[in-house]
C-alpha cells in the first residue's frame, strides 16, 4: 500500500547478451560497443536457426551471403573463434575473438592469433604440409589451376623467406620476424569497422539497456 511505484522499470530480457560490463572489462570495447556488437551477433545468429548462437552455416552466410559456399578459411576462422569446440559461437566467444581485430588491440595478440589460424593442426608450428593444404584450398576455391610444380615453387619461396633456421617448419619467432618484415600481411587482422561499431549499429540504444516504462 502506497509503496507501489507509479512507474515500473523493466529491464528487457536479452538472452545471450550476458553481462556487457564483464565483456567490456575483458576487451578493448566499451559497454555501449559490446551492446552494439550484440546487434550484429543477433543478426548473424538468426541467419538459419534463431537460437542465439552462430553455427558454421550462419557464419558462412554472413561472410558470403551464401551458406552453400564452403570456404576453407571461413571454416578455419570459425574453428578458432569456437574456443571450447562446441560447434557454435556464443556471444562471449564472438566479442573476445573480434577484440583481437580491434584497431587498438595489441599487435602481439594479432600476430599470435594469425599464427593460430595458420597452425591448422595446433602443433605450435606452421608446417609445410599445412601451408600446402591452405594454398591448394585457396586455388581450388578461386578456380585457379596451377601445376604441382608451381605449387611447390610457392612453398619453396614461402619457406625460404620464413623458415630461417631451415628445420622445415615455421615457429612463432620466425612468424613474428616474417610479419615484422611484411606488415601488409597483418592488415587482415585489423577491422576498422570495430572503431565505430556504435554508429554502424545504432539500434543498440533501443534494444539494449533500455529501461522500459510500464
Amino acid at each position: 500500500m502506497g509503496c507501489v511505484p507509479s512507474k515500473v522499470v523493466v529491464r528487457r530480457h536479452l538472452p545471450g547478451l550476458g553481462n556487457p560490463v564483464v565483456l567490456a572489462s575483458q576487451t578493448a570495447f566499451s559497454v555501449s560497443e559490446v551492446q552494439a556488437l550484440y546487434e550484429l551477433f543477433k543478426s548473424i545468429s538468426s541467419g538459419v536457426i534463431d537460437d542465439g548462437l552462430i553455427n558454421k552455416e550462419e557464419f558462412q552466410l554472413a561472410l558470403f551471403k551464401n551458406q552453400k559456399k564452403e570456404n576453407f578459411f571461413a571454416n578455419r576462422i570459425f574453428d578458432v573463434f569456437d574456443v571450447d569446440k562446441k560447434g557454435v559461437i556464443d556471444f562471449g566467444d564472438f566479442v573476445r575473438a573480434l577484440n583481437i581485430f580491434h584497431p587498438n588491440a595489441p599487435h602481439e595478440n594479432k600476430v599470435n592469433f594469425s599464427f593460430k589460424i595458420y597452425d591448422l593442426d595446433n602443433t605450435g608450428y606452421i608446417e609445410r604440409q599445412e601451408v600446402k593444404q591452405m594454398v591448394i584450398a585457396l586455388l581450388f576455391e578461386s578456380e585457379m589451376r596451377l601445376t604441382d610444380e608451381a605449387v611447390e615453387a610457392i612453398l619453396d619461396k614461402t619457406f625460404s623467406e620464413t623458415d630461417v633456421n631451415q628445420d622445415g617448419k615455421i615457429d612463432k619467432e620466425e612468424w613474428c620476424n616474417f610479419v615484422g618484415r611484411n606488415p601488409s600481411l597483418m592488415k587482415i587482422m585489423t577491422l576498422p569497422y570495430l572503431k565505430d561499431i556504435t554508429t554502424t549499429f545504432p539500434s543498440f540504444v533501443f534494444n539494449s539497456e533500455v529501461d522500459e516504462i510500464d
Partner: peptide
Amino acid sequence: RPPTMNAFELIATSQGLNLGKLFEK
C-alpha cells in the same frame, strides 16, 4: 611465367579471411 608469390601473401588476400564482410549490411 609470373613471379612466384609467397603463400601467405596469397592467403592474406583471400576472401575467407576478410571479416570486414560481417559488417556489411
